Lab assay of single mutants.
Amino acid sequence: CFKERTRHLLREWYLQDPYPNPSKKRELAQATGLTPTQVGNWFKNRRQRDR
């Protein structure tokens, strides 16, 4: 489970761009302490949920 702060950051970025490029994923991974793969999976799952 991700911390509330991490989820908030991910949601904020998702609203700006639901399809982040690899450099954005790396930047967000550094900001949250997650791996770029975890960030990518979160975005993928969130896009699925929004369908």
Rank of each mutant, 00 (worst) to 15 (best):
G40M: 06
Q38H: 01
S23A: 13
L28M: 13
N41G: 05
R7G: 10
L10G: 00
P18Q: 10
T37H: 13
D50E: 10
K24S: 11
N21S: 12
R5H: 03
K3I: 11
K44S: 09
L10F: 04
R11Q: 15
G33Y: 04
K3S: 15
G40T: 11
S23H: 06
Q30I: 14
P20T: 01
Y19Q: 08
R11W: 11
F43A: 00
Q38I: 04
N45C: 08
P18V: 02
V39E: 01
Q16R: 11
Q38E: 09
K25N: 07
A31P: 03
N21H: 15
R46Q: 14
H8K: 15
N21D: 15
F2K: 15
D50I: 00
A29T: 00
S23F: 10
D50K: 07
K44A: 11
H8D: 14
G40F: 15
W42R: 03
F43G: 06
Y19S: 06
G33M: 06
Q16G: 07
S23R: 02
D50M: 08
W42C: 00
W13S: 14
D50P: 02
L10A: 00
P22Y: 07
P18C: 09
R5D: 14
K44H: 02
A31S: 09
T35K: 06
N45L: 08
D50S: 09
K24Y: 04
F43K: 01
E27F: 09
D17F: 02
R51D: 10
G40Y: 03
L10W: 01
Y14R: 02
P22I: 05
Y14T: 00
S23K: 06
F2D: 14
A29C: 04
P22G: 14
L15T: 12
L15K: 13
E12P: 00
R5C: 12
D17T: 01
Y19N: 11
K3N: 11
L9P: 05
L10P: 03
N21F: 02
T35Q: 03
L9D: 04
Y14Q: 01
N21C: 12
G40L: 05
T6Q: 11
L28V: 08
R49A: 09
R7C: 09
N45R: 13
L9M: 10
T32F: 00
G33Q: 06
K44E: 13
G33P: 02
P36H: 06
F43H: 02
N45H: 12
N21E: 11
L10Q: 05
G33H: 05
R47V: 03
P22D: 15
T35R: 02
A31N: 12
R46A: 11
F43W: 01
L28K: 10
E27V: 04
E4H: 06
F2W: 08
Q48T: 08
F43S: 02
R7F: 10
R5T: 15
H8A: 15
R26Q: 15
T32Y: 02
R47W: 07
D50Y: 02
L34A: 01
L34V: 02
Y14S: 01
L15I: 13
W13I: 10
T35I: 01
Q16H: 08
R5L: 11
H8C: 13
V39F: 02
L34N: 02
G40R: 15
R7Q: 14
G33E: 04
T32V: 09
K24T: 13
S23W: 06
L15V: 14
Q30D: 13
K25I: 14
F2E: 14
N21R: 07
Q48N: 14
H8E: 15
Y14P: 00
L34S: 04
Y14N: 01
T35P: 02
Q16V: 12
Y19W: 14
N45D: 10
Q30Y: 08
Y14H: 00
K24V: 11
D50Q: 11
L28R: 03
R49G: 08
K3H: 00
R49C: 08
P22S: 13
R49Y: 08
T35W: 02
P18H: 07
R47I: 00
K25R: 12
R46V: 07
D17M: 02
K3D: 14
T32N: 02
R26H: 12
Q38L: 02
K25M: 12
Q38W: 03
T32W: 02
L9G: 01
H8Q: 15
F43P: 01
T6Y: 07
W42S: 01
K44C: 08
R47Q: 06
